[in-house]
């Protein structure tokens, strides 16, 4: 009888000890009680006035909508072949302009209204791959790869102003759809963003 009681006490103590050592959270969770938390990737972010995720998302969204409405895309007999060219960053801060065009490309590809050719930056890799399977048809195939109906180019600009109370940042992202054969600009649009930061008046 005494042995059974001893075993029960031992089991209880072991269970308490084990539970005490067990990390918080549950199955599929690591570091549950840390300060790191996942947030909404599409939430409006106003941590600083620099070009941020919200600006990237809203720019891509607005310019994609505009491009899909342009008659050269919307009224095309078949989805035109488009190649992304460089979008120049003419601001004073580092902006990954490829992130903007990549996001637009993903959205346009999902729409099914546009086909994309490999970027000029990736053409070397595509060519390397093609050389591996070089054949008599290579020249014809190369032509197909070079035949873009349109290219997309653009610029990102910013104007910053500040006084002792307010800092104002204006971003302008403009894109163009150009027919590379004729050089004609068939569509252009811009996304404007203004961010105003009120400087704290609390001080010594």
């Amino acid at each position: 009888m005494k042995t059974i009681a001893n075993i029960s006490v031992s089991i209880t103590i072991a269970a308490i000890l084990l539970n005490g050592c067990a990390p918080k959270g549950g199955a599929g969770m690591v570091g549950y009680d840390s300060n790191v938390k996942y947030g909404d990737a599409k939430a409006v972010e106003t941590v600083t006035a620099d070009f941020g995720s919200t600006d990237l998302q809203s720019t891509a969204e607005a310019l994609t909508q505009s491009l899909l409405e342009s008659r050269y895309i919307a009224k095309a007999q078949q989805p035109p072949k488009v190649r992304l060219r460089t979008v120049n960053n003419m601001t004073y801060e580092h902006i990954d302009t490829k992130a903007i065009t990549d996001k637009i490309r993903i959205k346009l590809l999902k729409s099914g209204a546009v086909r994309f050719l490999a970027d000029t930056a990736n053409l070397n890799q595509v060519n390397d791959e093609r050389e591996l399977t070089a054949s008599a048809t290579a020249i014809k195939e190369n032509k197909a790869m070079a035949d873009s109906d349109f290219i997309i180019t653009g610029n990102v600009r910013s104007i910053k102003k500040a006084n002792e109370n307010v800092q104002d940042v204006y971003y302008n992202v403009s894109l163009e759809l150009v027919n590379p054969q004729s050089g004609e600009i068939v569509w252009a649009d811009e996304k404007e963003i203004r961010k105003v930061t009120a400087k704290s008046s609390v001080g010594w």
Partner: peptide, 8 residues
Amino acid sequence: KDTTPWKA
């Protein structure tokens, strides 16, 4: 199927 980003 999709959501827009939150817009201010």
